[in-house]
Design a protein around this nucleic acid. Structure first.
Length: 437
RNA sequence: GCGAUCAUAGCUCAGUUGGUUAGAGCACCAGAUUGUGGAUCUGGGGGUCGCGGGUUCGAGUCCCGUUGGUCGCCCCA
C-alpha cells in the first residue's frame, strides 16, 4: 500500500485504461470531424466569475476553486460551455458561419462519487453558433447519434429523448402562468419522472397547490410522445407562436427522418433539463435499459453568449461524458481489449549480432514500424517465447549464421514460416508484409 | 451535506468459537532451456491484514473512531 494515492474521485489511467479512453476519444474525434466540426481547446483553469456568471453563486460549492497567488479567484473547469462561449464571443464577427466547434477535454467537479460520476471526467463537447433555426439541431443530434453508433451501439442500445423548453414556455403562458410560476412548473416537470406527484411540492410551497384542471393539462402535455400529439394539443389553443414553433418541430423531425435517424429519436416532453440557460430544443441520450444515468445531453442556449459578455449569438450544443458511456460500452461488450503489440520483435544472438540489429531496428522505427527487442542478452528460446507473447506479427532473427551470410531471418509468427532476407532488402520486405496486410 | 455497505499481495479471494511465523489462484521475475512459440515443472520477489485507538495473556477476526472504495439521496452544468 503506497503512501500516496489519487485524490478521492480521481482516476489513474494505466496503459490498458488509457487505451480504452483513447479508443473512445479517437472515434468521437473521427465522428465530429466527419461532420465538419473543428477542434479547439482552452485552459483547464478559468476565472471563477465565468462560472458564477453562467450558473449563479451557488455553483462554487460544486467547483474545485481557490485563490491564486495573484489574488485571483479561479476554478478548474466543470464544463466547457462558458469557455467556448467566451472564445466564440470574443471573435464572433470574424468567424465563418456556421461556427461548428468541438473539444474533447477533462473536467472537474467537487461532488460525491457515484456510478458513472466522478470528480474528474472527460467530455466531448460539440456546438454550433450563429444558426437560429432547427438545422443546427439536426446536425447536432445526428452527430450525437453517430458518436454512439461509431462504437457499434444500435437503436436497441440507446435513444435520444427530444423536448422543447420554448414549447413549454409558450404552452404554460397560454395556460395563464406567469414567468416565475412557469419556472417552478418546469422544475416539477424535470423531477416528475423520478418523484411522481411529489415533484410539485416545490411549486405548492411557493404558490400554493396547482389548480386541478391546470395540473391535468400540464401532466397531459408532459406525457406527450409524438409530434402529432403536440400538434393536436397546441391546435386547440390557437396561439400564433405555438404554431410557428411547430414548423420548427416539423423541420427537425423531418430532417432527422431523412437522415434515417428516426429510430433513435423519441419525442418526450418530460425532458426539460434543469439548466436555466436552455432556450429551445433540449435532448438527452439514455441507454434503452434505463440502468445508467444520462449518456449525453444538450440543447439550445441562444442567450448565453451575450450573457457572458459577447454579442447576441444563437447556439446549440451537447456533451457526452466518458464515464457512463464507457460503462455502456463495457456492458454491451463493445469495449475492445486493446493490446500494445509491436509489429516486429527482434531475436538477437549475441554482441556482434546486436550491433547489426540496432541499425535495422532504428531504421525500421524511423520508417514507422513498432519494433521491440530484448534490452539484455537472453537465451534464444526465451526470446521466441517473448516474441510470441508480444503479439508481434514478425520476428527478425539475428544469429551468427545469418550475420555471416548478410541476411536476416524473417519469421511470420502466425504462419510459423520463415525466410532469409538480405539485410539491404529488410525494410522493403517488412513494408511489403504489412501493406499486404 | 446525508445514508447504506465494504476494506487481507498488482488482481480475484480464503483465513475455523479470538490462538504458532497470514495463505491460494492468476499476474510478475528467475531456473529447468546456448537457435524456434503463449505449455509444464521448480523456485523467487511482493503484506504495517487501509489507518489509529480500545478490549484481551493473545486481534486479520471483537468494539470505537478515522480514511478510502462502491452504491444510493441531494445535486447533476
Amino acid at each position: 500500500m503506497s503512501t500516496f494515492q489519487t485524490l478521492p474521485g480521481f482516476r489513474d489511467f494505466y496503459p490498458e485504461d488509457f487505451a480504452r479512453r483513447h479508443h473512445v476519444f479517437r472515434l468521437w474525434r473521427q465522428s465530429a470531424s466527419a461532420f465538419g466540426f473543428s477542434e479547439y481547446d482552452a485552459p483547464v483553469l478559468e476565472s471563477l466569475e465565468l462560472y458564477k456568471a453562467k450558473s449563479g453563486d451557488e455553483i462554487e460549492a460544486q467547483l474545485f476553486s481557490f485563490t491564486d497567488k495573484g489574488g485571483r479567484d479561479v476554478a478548474l473547469r466543470p464544463e466547457m460551455t462558458p469557455t467556448v462561449c467566451r472564445m466564440v464571443g470574443a471573435r464572433a464577427n470574424a468567424l465563418k458561419r456556421p461556427i461548428r466547434w468541438f473539444s474533447i477535454a477533462e473536467f472537474y467537479r467537487y461532488e460525491r462519487m457515484q456510478k458513472g460520476r466522478g470528480r474528474c471526467f472527460s467530455q466531448l463537447n460539440a456546438d454550433i453558433f450563429g444558426e437560429p433555426g432547427p438545422e443546427a439541431e439536426i446536425e447536432l443530434i445526428a452527430l450525437l447519434v453517430q458518436c454512439l453508433c461509431a462504437f457499434g451501439l444500435r437503436e436497441e442500445d440507446f435513444f435520444v429523448r427530444l423536448s422543447d423548453r420554448n414549447l413549454w414556455y409558450y404552452y404554460l403562458e397560454a395556460l395563464g402562468l406567469d414567468e416565475s410560476r412557469t419556472r417552478a412548473v418546469l422544475a416539477a416537470i424535470d423531477k416528475y419522472e423520478k418523484s411522481g406527484d411529489a415533484a410539485f411540492d416545490g411549486y405548492a410551497e411557493k404558490f400554493g397547490p396547482l389548480e386541478a384542471g391546470l395540473k391535468e393539462k400540464i401532466l397531459g402535455f408532459l406525457q406527450i410522445k409524438s409530434l402529432p400529439a403536440i400538434e393536436h394539443a397546441v391546435a386547440a389553443l390557437g396561439v400564433d407562436r405555438l404554431a410557428a414553433r411547430l414548423a420548427d418541430w416539423r423541420k427537425l423531425i423531418d430532417g432527422l427522418g431523412a437522415m434515417g435517424l428516426s429510430r433513435f429519436v423519441e419525442v418526450d416532453l418530460g425532458v426539460v433539463r434543469g439548466l436555466a440557460y436552455y432556450t429551445g430544443f433540449v435532448f438527452e441520450a439514455f441507454d434503452r435499459k434505463g440502468e445508467l444515468r444520462a449518456l449525453a445531453g444538450g440543447g439550445r442556449y441562444d442567450d448565453l453568449v451575450a450573457k457572458l459578455g459577447g454579442p447576441a449569438l444563437p447556439a446549440v450544443g451537447f456533451a457526452i461524458g466518458d464515464m457512463t458511456f464507457s460503462l455502456l460500452l463495457e456492458q454491451r461488450g463493445l469495449m475492445p481489449t486493446l493490446v500494445f503489440a509491436p509489429d516486429v520483435y527482434c531475436v538477437i544472438g549475441g554482441v556482434p549480432e546486436r550491433q547489426a540489429a540496432f541499425g535495422d531496428i532504428h531504421a525500421l522505427r524511423a520508417g514507422g514500424f513498432r519494433v521491440d527487442y530484448p534490452l539484455k542478452e537472453v537465451a534464444f528460446g526465451k526470446q521466441f517465447k517473448t516474441a510470441a507473447e508480444s503479439g508481434a506479427k514478425l520476428a527478425l532473427i539475428y544469429g551468427s549464421d545469418e550475420l555471416a551470410r548478410g541476411v536476416v531471418k524473417v519469421r511470420d509468427l502466425e504462419q510459423r514460416t520463415e525466410m532469409d532476407v538480405p539485410r539491404a532488402d529488410l525494410i522493403a520486405t517488412v513494408r511489403d508484409f504489412f501493406s499486404a496486410g
